[in-house]
Write a protein that binds this DNA or RNA. Structure first.
Lengths: 257, 257
DNA sequence: CGTATCATTGACGTCGGTCAATTCGTGTGG
DNA sequence: CCACACGAATTGACCGACGTCAATGATACG
């Protein structure tokens, strides 16, 4: 049942305070972002170029499908989900964005957006103005190379998801998605060393990402739990049998980050 | 039934002579390729850099999943299909590449390939050596920007396919795929003005791209024909009812090229 | 003209969807 | 602190879209 405003049902968790850096020098995740190639001396350029850092509450939209957008975003903290809504009312999630993702960049920067980006948690973003962005990239070769690489990585992620949705049964699909998120969190060292991994998704999100119904996701998660593979409950994932999970999800092909 | 060599069943059409240009100056589709930003004066650089132009017969592989690859390819003429094979034996096609596509570029250029690229028709490609490529891009900002844009466009295509496979029923999926290929052909002016559009795909290819079985693709194509929407037979597509097709396939969201 | 691939058809089975009722969990307000 | 509300998760009954298997026809290429 789609919400009246067309959004995805989201968790409006409070109590999570996203971290916003004092300045680009202090940006803790700069190596993950598009700013990675910039030397400290070049940061001033970007600092004057960018609009500023902002904290947004869970449920807010960075941009909406079909509407123009005047900004670009560096995701600094929190989770963002990117999806499209079809006329049938179905939602297709195309990306779960973690810190470091560059959001809002589409081939035609002046066209209306093709997707909606919605905050899954409270979020911190670094905001760029959209129109002068091509100029910034054109005059800064390092940024262009970095952008090419980021886009290529996102492409691999998307093709990976396509393969998952198009060619695997429901249990493997779910296992693959959750395991992939795990790996991405690990690579960023965003997970504490505990056995429980916090993943702020509802079963509806999983369903919308994988082309399944929420009911069947529930049933399949139960089955995975009873089989002793993994346990996802209350936005907490516990891996019960790593080998079994790797086998089921066919994890040889994980995206780069 | 997967072939013994792991490939997709392909059409080995003869009688189609791919066009290979006399040199970069004469390259008829340069505006579509990664070379687009290069001025005539810069072409010499690339000419000395590249390995050469090659013609390959239908069925040959540009590179194979899991194996290293020493080249990168500009597709000049013909169709190439990019896919992954899962342990289950299922194939997932992630891209139908048309002339202009830059093939073989993955985030880690020295790692084994994640996908297989196989020629659907006889093909002409312009070959680059793989190892020095980052250097070429780093020293040529125009190329970096172009590469970023190409990757971004491919990303939109992949997300589009993901949405198609994850959120649409079989008839709309097939309609969307075929209509999308039509549009891409049109944009390149690769189609003669006839009513029949040549699309060198098997029903098996359609099935492997869309996560359907070949049998159901056959049944659904028949149904689309009887409903007077489109007629795809013997690798020839005829659109019977354009409005109905646009409605069914929800063609508001076509990728840029 | 023979053989392999591709396409079609029918019978049958199942994975996963839909609907609806109930329960659970969490945040809110009296 | 409890009651309430609302979304999230679960469960069961039922059903339909799509897959599998197998046999037959149509095409194309050597």
């Amino acid at each position: 049942m789609p919400r009246p405003d067309g959004g995805i049902r989201t968790l409006h968790r409070s109590g999570y305070a996203p971290h916003v850096p004092a300045g680009c020098q202090e940006c803790p995740i700069r190596p993950l972002t598009i700013c990675q190639p910039l030397a400290d001396s070049e940061l001033g350029l970007v600092s004057t170029f960018k609009t500023g850092d902002v904290v947004l509450p869970a449920g807010s939209m960075l941009y909406r499908q079909g509407e123009p957008c005047s900004k670009l975003y560096n995701l600094l903290d929190g989770w963002v989900v990117v999806y499209r809504v079809l006329r049938s009312g179905r939602h297709q999630i195309v990306d779960f964005a973690l810190p470091g993702r560059f959001l809002g960049c589409e081939p035609d920067l002046s066209a209306p957006m093709s997707y909606t980006a919605e905050c899954l948690t409270d979020v911190a973003v670094c905001v760029f103005p959209r129109r002068p962005f091509p100029e910034l990239v054109a005059t800064n070769p390092g940024l262009a190379v970095r952008l090419a690489w980021l886009n290529l990585r996102d492409l691999m992620v998307a093709r990976n998801n396509l393969t998952n949705v198009g060619a695997r049964p429901a249990d493997a699909r779910i296992a693959h998605l959750l395991a992939g998120l795990c790996v991405r969190l690990r690579r960023r060292q965003l997970t504490p060393c505990s056995r429980d991994i916090e993943i702020p998704l509802t079963q509806n999100h999983i369903a919308d990402a994988l082309g399944l119904s929420n009911v069947y996701v529930s049933q399949t998660l139960k089955q995975l739990r009873e089989q002793g593979v993994l346990d996802f409950k209350n936005r907490r994932l516990r891996i019960l049998d790593l080998d079994g999970l790797v086998e089921l999800a066919e994890l040889d092909d994980l995206p780069d980050l």
